[in-house]
Computed example of a mutant assay.
Amino acid sequence: MAKDFYGDLRLGILGGGQLGRMLIQEAINFNVNIHVLDPDPNAPCKKLCNQFEVGSLSDFDTVYNFGKDLDMITIEIEKVNVDALEKLEDEGVLVYPQSRVIRLIQDKGLQKQFFKQNDIPTSAFQFISNRDGLANCQIALPYIQKLRKDGYDGKGVKKISSSADYADAFDAPSIVEEMVDFEKEIAVIVARNDRGDMATFPMVEMEFNPQANLVEFLISPSTYSFDIQSKAESIALKIANDLQIVGVLAVEMFLTKDGDILVNELAPRPHNSGHQTIEGNFTSQFGQHLRAIFNLPLGNTESRANAIMVNLLGEEGYEGLAEYDGIEEALSIEGVYVHLYGKKYTKPFRKMGHVCIINQDRALAIENARKVQELIKVIA
C-alpha cells in the first residue's frame, strides 16, 4: 500500500462530520487524495478534503457513483448504503470496515445475536417487532428499549419503568435489554489490519450527560485494577478477531458492581471514546485507523500522560450561529487543547467540539478538566 501514497491513493470517506474532519487532519500526513460524501453542503470536512460531494449516504446510486473511481472507502458514520458498498467491493474497491461488518453493526439486534453466538458477555435481551410486544416481555421491568436501527448519540433508547411507559415506547423493531446495574461505563478501542495484527488502546472511563445520554467527560487511562483492564481489552480483541474487521472498532462496555464486564454496543470507526488519543497517546485513533486500512504496522497505543476529554455540547436554550464563550480563559490553563468541529450552527446538545486536558498528575488533569467544563459554553 505504501507505493500508493504521495497523492496517488484516492480515499473516500462516507460522512463529512467531525470524525471525518479529524481523520483528514491525520491523513494529510500520509499525503493521500481525500474525497468526501455528505448530505450537508456545509459539513465540517468541506474545506479540508480534495473533493467534496453533496449527496445522500443512504442512496444506492449516489454511494456507488461516489466510490466507483476510488481506490478505497472508509466511513465515519454507519448509516450508509451497504448494498452499494458490496457492489463496489465486488468491483475491486477496498471497503474498510468491510460492508458485511457495517451491515451487522447497523442492526443492534444482529449485534446482540453476534455477541451470543460468539460467547461475548452482554446483558439479557429479547426482540420485539413493535410496542405491542412490550406487554409480553420476559425481561423484568424496568428495562431498556432500543431501536434496532438508526439510533445514535443517545437517540433510539428509552427506559421502560412500568406499563404506563408503553404508550410512549418505540413502535418499531426493537431490542428489550435487561437494565444493568453498572458502576461505570468503560470503552476500549481496538485496531486490526488486513494482516491480522491487532492492538488496543488503554481502557477509558466515561461519564454521560444525563439529559442527552452523550459522553460528556472521559478519563484515560483508567485506574481500575489490571485484571479489569486486561479483561476489557481481551474482550475487545476477541470481538475484532471474530469480526475479522479491518480498521478501528470502539467497544462500549458496562463494568457492573459485581466486577463483571458486559458489552453494550460497537462502533466500527473512530469514536467519541478515543478523541483524547490525539494528544494523550503516542498514536491517535485516527492515525491508527489509517494504519489499519492501509495495512501498515499498527502504532504504539500507550498513553503519554493522563488525558481527560470534555465534549463541547451546544447549551440548552441556544440555537443559531455558534459562539464559543470562555476559550481564552480555558487556554490559559496548562495542557489544554481545543478542537472545534467547524459547525456553523449550534443547537442544544449538538457536538460542537471537544477539549483534551493532559497532565502527568491525574488529579490535576481532572481538576483542570472540570474548570474547562465550566468555562467553555457554546451559545448563539
Rank of each mutant, 00 (worst) to 15 (best):
R370A: 10
L14M: 14
C137F: 09
G16W: 02
E91R: 04
G342N: 12
K158L: 06
S273A: 06
D83F: 04
A250Q: 08
L266S: 08
I75S: 02
F170S: 09
D194I: 04
A322E: 00
G151S: 13
D361M: 06
E86G: 02
F114D: 01
E233S: 15
S162P: 13
V355Q: 03
R131A: 04
Q117D: 11
K377L: 09
N193Y: 01
G314R: 02
A135M: 07
G154D: 03
K257F: 10
A365S: 05
L340H: 04
R304C: 09
L290C: 11
V251N: 04
R103A: 07
K231T: 13
L37Y: 02
I13Y: 01
V82I: 08
K155P: 02
C137L: 11
D325V: 03
V95L: 12
L364Y: 10
L266V: 12
A305K: 14
P268L: 03
E91N: 15
P44E: 03
G156I: 09
A27F: 08
Y324M: 06
I358N: 10
N65G: 09
H289G: 06
P221E: 03
I139C: 10
M1S: 09
K46D: 03
L249Y: 07
E265K: 10
D107F: 01
K377A: 13
I357W: 03
E279C: 08
L19M: 05
M206G: 06
V32G: 07
D71R: 06
L110R: 06
I139K: 10
K3Q: 14
G320V: 12
G17K: 01
D61N: 14
P41G: 01
I128Q: 02
A124I: 11
R350P: 11
A84S: 09
E323S: 10
L141H: 15
N136K: 15
E26F: 01
E233H: 00
